Amino acid sequence: MNKFLWICAALMGLFVTGESLTCNTCTVGITGKCLFTSTETCDNSTPHCYWGELVFNISSLVRVQLRGCLDTARCNQTEADSLLTTGYTITRTCCSTDRCNGATSLQLHLTAALGTALMIVWSTWSQ
């Protein structure tokens, strides 16, 4: 029975590591508050969560917050560009755990939770 539990634990570990990253999204955020929030599942081309801040050069008071999935090359970078002759700077910071870019509470994967519950039940039966 002990070998069976270890095999189940190994299989559950494979399922947990094979899941895609889930990130918070914020398409428009002003003064630190997102107006339109949701979540998205990242793919292989954008494997990191990020939070970013866009600041217009004309006034540092105009700051726009952004969140979502991002590719590795643009992680932890600051870029400067312009939009209709107005310059701006955008800084993006990346992280690599589920909803690490602004989640208010720790979320446990359903797979890990079910695996833990099954292991507890099986361990009590084997005694």
Score class of each variant (00 low, 15 high):
Met1Gly: 07
Met1Trp: 09
Met1Pro: 04
Asn2Leu: 13
Asn2Phe: 02
Lys3Gly: 10
Lys3Asn: 05
Phe4Ile: 11
Leu5Tyr: 08
Trp6Ala: 15
Ile7Cys: 08
Leu11Arg: 00
Met12Tyr: 06
Leu14Asn: 04
Leu14Val: 05
Phe15Ser: 01
Phe15Met: 03
Val16Tyr: 07
Thr17Tyr: 05
Ser20Glu: 08
Thr22Ser: 15
Cys26Ser: 05
Cys26Thr: 13
Thr27Gln: 05
Thr27Leu: 11
Val28Phe: 10
Val28Cys: 01
Thr31Ala: 03
Gly32Thr: 00
Gly32Ser: 01
Lys33Asp: 08
Cys34Trp: 01
Cys34Glu: 06
Leu35Asn: 09
Phe36Asp: 12
Ser38Arg: 03
Thr39Tyr: 00
Thr39Asn: 10
Glu40Ile: 11
Thr41Pro: 15
Thr41Cys: 12
Cys42Lys: 00
Cys42Asn: 06
Cys42Met: 02
Asp43Cys: 04
Asn44Tyr: 12
Asn44Arg: 04
Asn44Pro: 08
Ser45Arg: 05
His48Tyr: 05
His48Arg: 11
Gly52Asp: 10
Gly52Val: 01
Val55Glu: 02
Val55Asp: 02
Phe56Met: 09
Phe56Ile: 07
Ile58Asp: 12
Leu61Tyr: 10
Leu61Thr: 08
Arg63Cys: 01
Arg63Met: 06
Arg63Ile: 03
Arg63Gln: 11
Val64Cys: 00
Val64Trp: 02
Leu66Arg: 01
Arg67Lys: 14
Gly68Ala: 04
Gly68Ser: 05
Gly68Gln: 06
Cys69Asp: 14
Asp71Gln: 13
Cys75Asn: 04
Asn76Thr: 11
Asn76Leu: 13
Gln77Pro: 00
Thr78Asn: 05
Glu79Lys: 03
Ala80Gly: 15
Asp81Asn: 12
Asp81Phe: 03
Ser82Met: 03
Ser82Cys: 02
Ser82Val: 11
Leu83Gln: 11
Leu84Cys: 08
Leu84Asn: 05
Thr86Glu: 02
Thr86Val: 15
Thr86Met: 12
Thr86Arg: 07
Thr86Lys: 01
Gly87Ile: 02
Tyr88Ser: 00
Tyr88Gln: 03
Thr89Ile: 14
Ile90Ala: 00
Cys94Pro: 08
Cys95Glu: 15
Ser96Ile: 13
Thr97Tyr: 12
Thr97Ala: 08
Thr97Ile: 10
Asp98Tyr: 03
Asp98Ile: 05
Arg99Trp: 10
Cys100Thr: 12
Cys100Arg: 09
Asn101Thr: 14
Asn101Ala: 11
Asn101Arg: 00
Gly102Leu: 06
Ala103Gln: 07
Ala103Leu: 05
Thr104Pro: 07
Ser105Pro: 07
Leu106Gln: 09
Leu106Ala: 09
Gln107Gly: 07
Leu108Arg: 13
Leu108Gln: 01
His109Trp: 06
Leu110Val: 11
Leu110Gln: 10
Leu110Thr: 15
Thr111Arg: 03
Ala112Leu: 07
Ala113Arg: 06
Gly115Leu: 09
Gly115Trp: 04
Gly115Tyr: 02
Thr116Asp: 10
Met119Asp: 14
Ile120Phe: 02
Val121Tyr: 13
Val121Asn: 11
Val121Trp: 04
Trp122Arg: 10
Ser123Gly: 13
Ser126Asp: 15
Ser126Ile: 15
Gln127Ser: 13
